[in-house]
Design a protein around this nucleic acid. Structure first.
Lengths: 216, 216
DNA sequence: ACATTAAATGACTCGTCGGTCAGTTATTTG
DNA sequence: CAAATAACTGACCGACGAGTCATTTAATGT
């Protein structure tokens, strides 16, 4: 990664690239964190991936923890924001909106290294309380409130039955997050399965589960 | 823990307790692993919890990895087996059976340190391929096949609609496992919620989602 | 009581990795 | 084309923790 952008074609040992370093380090860090988890990630490897020395990391980030927090901020928060924006002025069927959101999430999170973040947050929460709180407030709670809101909209519109929207949101989201976690952990040893088909099945079961009954 | 069983009332520095050591070490290990994760668990701490020295651990277990594998075998496999046994000769409503199983699981896994195991397996899978495969084969796949079987029974009985039982099982299980993971990680920083009510809600939505439609 | 056995330990080694810093070198400036 | 600047690095340090082993001592047997 970054090899071409960073290649030293002439006899120069390294280049000054202050502007690009942070972004390159961040994406290298995301990749390695995602693959190895937090504790097992060696900054030496992150540095090598980014085409710099370990010491250079410390020019741009205070510590391993700070680097990880920057990764979360850089790659996860925008995803949440985007989903919120998409739903902002939507008026159609909630079911269809949720399908669109799920599809977008599958492509932009699940099939990228971003899907490795939840795994780490889960694993390391007890070791980094401050980071855990940050993630909880800025990602998890926001996502939960967002989905709860969607479900409540669906109830108001008569699309869904009266139910505990908050629990329902938890139910839905947990599978979504778990799928990400799974993809970056045990899935590597499991037989392949069709993630897209599974997610559609999940949404289908969930929507039926909270839909207004045809007759009581 | 084990303090009373292990207390050195008289002026004796330690006692020979070959028979009880492994079990005590295992439950201490479960507790610490569950709390800290694999990498952050220090065998020194496990030893102290068990009331022995670190060197004693190595009398009974070959390595940290071997200890962890023993923990999984000791505490997780019996849970799977028990669920399989309970369903063995059952003939009633699948919905009710699933409710019973879920309740048992909540009490015997979720509310104990066993709930910490999934978190670790997820986090460390890529660092311990052999352990990951073991867990996948003996826990995850077995659980998946078990639930798939239950759903297929429900379909045969006309309780559930024709659907992809395998995907449905994945859907159901993922929330179950995620709840365990959650409980031992970020839940500590989140406001409390009623786990039992949530699980019931989850089961309710799920069962509705795969039930035969009243009318099409 | 004393010798023997083996359970248990304290103190050790060794490798690893986050973090630091004095020095090097690409780049800019006048 | 120096001289000044700052981006970058290699080589190092210190902490930490898994794993080892010579020694101690509780228990057993005679």
């Amino acid at each position: 990664m970054h090899v071409s952008a960073n290649s030293l074609s002439d006899s120069v040992r390294w280049r000054r690239r202050k502007d690009n370093r942070p972004a390159e380090i961040l994406s290298s860090a995301l990749k390695v964190f995602s693959l190895k988890g937090y504790a097992a990630t060696k900054l030496e490897i992150v540095a090598k991936q980014a085409g710099v020395s370990k010491a250079t990391l410390y020019l741009y980030f205070e510590s391993k923890e700070a680097l990880f927090k920057a990764v979360v901020t850089e790659f996860v928060l925008p995803q949440i924001k985007r989903a919120e924006d998409q739903a902002q002025n939507y008026t159609g069927s909630i079911k269809i909106l949720m399908h669109e959101l799920l599809e977008h999430w599958r492509i932009n999170v699940l099939e990228t290294d971003v899907s490795g973040i939840p795994k780490i947050m889960i694993a390391e929460a007890s070791n980094f309380p401050e980071l855990a709180t940050f993630y909880l407030d800025n990602v998890i709670k926001r996502a939960r409130e967002f989905v709860t809101h969607l479900i409540n909209l669906g109830i108001e519109k008569g699309e869904f039955r009266e139910c505990n929207a908050s629990y329902a949101a938890r139910s839905f989201i947990s599978t979504i997050i778990f799928t990400a976690i799974w993809e970056k952990s045990l899935a590597a040893y499991d037989e392949a399965y069709d993630t897209q088909a599974f997610l559609n099945s999940h949404l289908d079961i969930f929507i039926r589960g909270i839909s207004k009954d045809i007759q009581e």
